[in-house]
Lab assay of single mutants.
Amino acid sequence: GLTEEQKQEIREAFDLFDTDGSGTIDAKELKVAMRALGFEPKKEEIKKMISEIDKDGSGTIDFEEFLTMMTA
């Protein structure tokens, strides 16, 4: 499992990506986040990433899903 410290770091990354503070990361926010990390993702790639992570089919990534992605 994760230490509380690791969870906190992932939470901070999540909050950075969640620019509108909605508690979820949408495609637009993910794209901005990827760019910040030096990637140039295409729209299809973003969609694919979200569909792989987005277990509940909401079209957005919540913290639990993000946590799973970061620790996979």
Rank of each mutant, 00 (worst) to 15 (best):
Q8G: 05
D26Y: 09
L2D: 02
G23C: 07
G21I: 02
M34R: 00
I25P: 00
G38K: 02
E9K: 15
Q6M: 09
L30Y: 02
E29C: 15
L37Y: 04
T19V: 08
A33K: 03
K42Q: 09
Q8P: 01
D18Y: 03
Q8I: 08
T68L: 14
M69C: 12
I53F: 15
E12L: 14
L16K: 11
T24F: 13
G59D: 06
E65G: 11
R35Y: 08
T68A: 13
K7D: 02
T71N: 04
K7Y: 12
G57W: 10
D15W: 11
K42D: 14
T24E: 06
S58G: 06
Q6C: 14
M49I: 11
E44D: 08
K43D: 15
T60S: 07
K28Y: 10
F17K: 01
G57I: 07
M49E: 02
M70G: 00
I25R: 00
K43A: 14
G59E: 05
K28S: 11
T60V: 10
G59K: 08
I46Q: 02
M69A: 07
S58H: 06
G1T: 11
K7C: 11
A13H: 05
T71F: 11
G57T: 05
I53S: 06
M49G: 03
I25K: 00
T24Q: 07
I61W: 04
D20T: 07
A13S: 04
E44N: 07
P41E: 04
T68E: 08
F63W: 08
D20L: 04
A33Y: 06
M69L: 11
D62T: 15
T71G: 07
S51M: 08
E64G: 07
S22V: 03
D62P: 03
L2P: 05
K7W: 09
L67T: 02
G38S: 02
A27K: 06
T3N: 06
F17N: 03
T19E: 06
F14I: 00
L2F: 11
D18K: 06
E5Q: 12
A13I: 14
R11D: 01
L37G: 02
L67Q: 02
E40H: 14
F39T: 02
K55R: 08
T24M: 05
F39R: 06
A33S: 01
D18T: 05
E52P: 02
K42H: 11
I53L: 12
L37T: 02
T60C: 08
E40M: 14
D54P: 03
M69T: 02
L67W: 09
R35E: 09
R11G: 01
G1Q: 10
L16V: 05
K55S: 08
K48I: 09
F17V: 14
K48Y: 04
F39W: 14
A36W: 14
T60G: 06
E12C: 15
G38A: 02
T3A: 05
L67H: 01
K42N: 14
L2K: 04
L30H: 00
F39E: 01
G59H: 06
T68F: 12
K31C: 15
D18C: 09
M49Q: 03
V32T: 13
F17T: 03
F63L: 04
M70N: 00
I46H: 03
A33Q: 01
E45V: 13
T19Y: 13
M49A: 04
T60R: 10
E45W: 15
F66L: 03
A36G: 04
L16Y: 12
D15T: 12
D54F: 11
E40R: 13
T71C: 13
L30C: 05
Q6F: 13
E12G: 09
K47Y: 10
D18V: 04
L37C: 15
F17Y: 10
S51G: 07
A72R: 15
P41W: 14
G59P: 04
F63A: 01
E40W: 12
E29A: 13
E52K: 13
V32H: 15
L16C: 13
R11E: 01
K28I: 07
L30G: 00
S58K: 12
F63N: 00
D62A: 07
L67A: 03
A27H: 06
D15P: 01
G1L: 09
I46L: 11
E44K: 07
L2N: 03
E9D: 08
K7Q: 05
K47P: 04
L67M: 07
F14T: 00
F63D: 00
E9H: 15
R35G: 05
I25W: 04
D56A: 07
G23T: 02
G1E: 09
K43E: 15
I50Q: 03
K28H: 11
L16E: 04
E64A: 10
G21M: 05
F66M: 02
F17I: 14
D62K: 09
M70Y: 12
F66Y: 02
S22E: 02
K7M: 11
E52I: 11
Q8Y: 11
G21Y: 05
A36E: 04
Q6T: 05
T24P: 01
D54I: 11
T60N: 06
E64D: 09
E9S: 13
S22M: 03
M70W: 13
F17L: 10
G59V: 04
R11C: 05
E29F: 14
V32C: 15
E52R: 13
S58F: 07
Q6R: 15
G57N: 08
K43Y: 14
F63E: 00
L2I: 07
R11K: 07
A13W: 15
K31A: 14
G23A: 03
D54H: 09
E52C: 15
F17D: 00
G38T: 02
M70Q: 01
I46K: 01
G23K: 03
F66D: 00
A36K: 11
K43V: 13
T60W: 06
R11V: 01
S58M: 06
D15F: 10
E44L: 06
G57M: 10
K47G: 06
M34V: 03
M70T: 01
F63V: 02
T3W: 04
T24C: 09
V32W: 15
E4R: 11
M49D: 02
I46A: 03
A36F: 13
I10M: 11
E52D: 10
I25M: 05
I61G: 00
I25C: 04
T3H: 04
Q8W: 11
I46P: 01
A36Q: 09
L30N: 00
D15V: 09
G38I: 02
E40P: 03
E4W: 12
G59Q: 05
S58V: 06
I10L: 12
E4L: 10
K48A: 11
F17H: 04
F17W: 09
M70H: 02
A13N: 02
F66G: 00
T71W: 13
Q6V: 06
E29M: 14
F66H: 00
S51K: 08
I46D: 03
I61S: 00
K7G: 03
L37M: 10
V32S: 15
K28Q: 10
L16W: 10
Q6G: 04
T3L: 04
A72M: 14
E65M: 14
F63I: 05
E9W: 15
L67S: 02
E65W: 12
F63H: 01
G21F: 04
K31I: 15
G57Y: 07
L37H: 03
T71H: 05
D18M: 04
E45P: 03
D18E: 01
I46E: 03
E44F: 06
M34G: 00
E44P: 05
T60I: 05
T60F: 06
K31Q: 14
L67Y: 08
G59T: 05
E65A: 14
I50M: 13
E5N: 08
K28V: 06
I50T: 03
I25H: 00
F63K: 01
S58I: 04
L30Q: 00
V32F: 15
A33F: 15
S51C: 11
I50C: 06
E40G: 07
D15R: 14
